[in-house]
């Protein structure tokens, strides 16, 4: 069977080994066969307790919600930047530079800054106080550690925007001017061209990158640890807590959580590859 697999695929498998190994080990650990307190007999108790624990699904759901919201905001903004500022004019170039400048800023810095700005005694609260809108930090609506995850969503969106904007701008530039000219001479107004040609091509091309940023936001530990509430917990934070739990059984549960996270990542990877194969060639 292995003999039929081309050599380069085996190389790729080697690169993926740590993940594949992690999956295998996590599966064994959550069944109690490997890891601390392991026994020779598989035991479904830990698996059962992970799967039936409401906390598990609340955390998974909440992390998905945060990743989805932040990615939706960032993708919309990135698409808007590419569509609204496409030319060589100075103002357009300036707008594009602004959108892409924070590209290499780490998640951690984005999250820390969000904390400085959006916390109840942060800069935003101070500005609102100066404007007479609130009189004490407690009156500031909670954006940090709140169940809505507003600060976390904004921090992740801020971090994702530059990357998605870079891709969207490259795509926008790659949409041949000829295509838009063709649509114009067939009777489409600039708005119609944007709606029927440019945007449909742009979002299809952007989709793989959107999936990639989604899965990065989903897995971002440091942003969640700084900005997410305790309940519902973010999945990466909950996993980390379980790893450090003094109870051995709870540590085993961490592997169950890791498996869920890896499952989400695997689906995203497959979707990334499928959308790239399907739409990647529409825009060069």
């Amino acid at each position: 069977m292995l003999r039929r697999v081309p050599f380069p695929v085996l190389l790729a498998m080697l690169v993926a080994t740590p993940v594949l190994f992690g999956v295998a080990y996590s599966a064994l650990a959550v069944l109690g066969i490997a890891g601390a307190g392991a026994s020779a007999v598989a035991d479904s108790d830990r698996l059962f307790s992970v799967l039936t624990d409401r906390t598990t699904w609340r955390a998974t759901g909440w992390s998905l919600y945060v990743a989805f919201s932040s990615t939706a905001i960032a993708a919309t903004a990135a698409g808007a930047v590419a569509l609204l500022f496409p030319t060589h004019k100075r103002s357009d170039r300036f707008a594009r530079s602004l959108a892409t400048l924070p590209l290499p800023v780490p998640h951690l810095v984005a999250a820390a800054t969000a904390l400085f700005v959006l916390s109840q005694s942060g800069l935003l609260a101070r500005v609102l106080h100066a404007l007479g809108l609130i009189d004490a930090p407690a009156n500031m609506p909670a954006l940090v550690y709140d169940a809505g995850g507003i600060a976390l969503i904004l921090a992740l969106a801020w971090k994702e925007l530059p990357f998605l904007a870079v891709v969207a701008i490259a795509l926008r530039a790659g949409i041949a001017r000829d295509l838009e000219d063709a649509a114009r001479t067939l009777g489409a107004s600039p708005r119609t061209v944007a709606r029927t040609v440019t945007w449909p091509l742009l979002w299809r091309g952007l989709f793989p990158a959107v999936i990639a940023t989604f899965v990065f936001a989903f897995g971002s530990f440091e942003s969640a640890v700084l900005l997410a509430p305790i309940d519902p917990a973010a999945l990466p934070v909950l996993t980390m807590e379980r790893f450090a739990d003094p109870l051995l059984a709870r540590r085993g549960e961490a592997y169950g959580l890791a498996l869920i996270a890896l499952g989400v990542a695997a689906v995203a990877v497959a979707a990334h590859e499928v959308t790239r194969a399907r739409w990647g060639s529409l825009v060069r």
Binding site: V9, A16, G219, A261, V264, A265, H272
Partner: peptide, 14 residues
């Protein structure tokens, strides 16, 4: 490509 992408996409904690 998907295999190679896995370690990149996997949540770091996992």
């Amino acid at each position: 490509a998907a295999l190679v992408f896995l370690p990149v996409a996997a949540p770091p904690i996992a």
